[in-house]
């Protein structure tokens, strides 16, 4: 565990996932999916899925351009949740099947 919390206090139960998944770079969020086991993806998916409604209600009150660090981390955590959703819900594997390792890295993404 880190000494400094990364997430807002109301969501401190998700702190164990923060270091791996609060990634500012959308490419890093996808690479983390590819580098994770299905067990790890499922654990992350289940933990965040259980709190997703509350997190989204919280973030709906925040201006993306005026967020503090903790809210930004929460935003990126949810970006990772969307990113792993396909692996868990649909493909049952980290990679998109039948693509021969094809990749389309992001070259432009919004901040944050």
């Amino acid at each position: 565990m880190r000494d400094e919390p990364m997430l807002p206090e109301a969501f401190s139960d998700l702190e164990p996932f923060a270091a791996s998944w609060c990634l500012s770079d959308a490419n890093a969020r996808y690479e983390q999916r590819l580098a994770s086991s299905m067990t790890a993806l499922q654990a992350f998916y289940d933990a965040v899925g259980a709190r997703a409604d509350a997190i989204l209600r919280h973030l709906a009150t925040r201006d993306p351009q005026a967020m503090d660090d903790a809210d930004r981390n929460l935003l990126w955590l949810m970006g990772s949740f969307s990113t792993v959703g396909f692996a868990v819900d649909v493909f049952k594997q980290p990679e998109v099947p039948d693509t021969g390792g094809a990749s389309m890295p992001w070259t432009t993404t919004p901040w944050p």
Partner: peptide, 28 residues
């Protein structure tokens, strides 16, 4: 441009979904 964090994530979920479809087309 999104007005709040929820809209920002709705957009990211759309682009993530599009890219998953596109990668399948890429393979074929």
């Amino acid at each position: 441009p999104p007005r709040n964090g929820f809209e920002r994530l709705s957009q990211e979920h759309t682009v993530n979904t599009v890219r998953e479809f596109v990668l399948q087309d890429y393979g074929s």
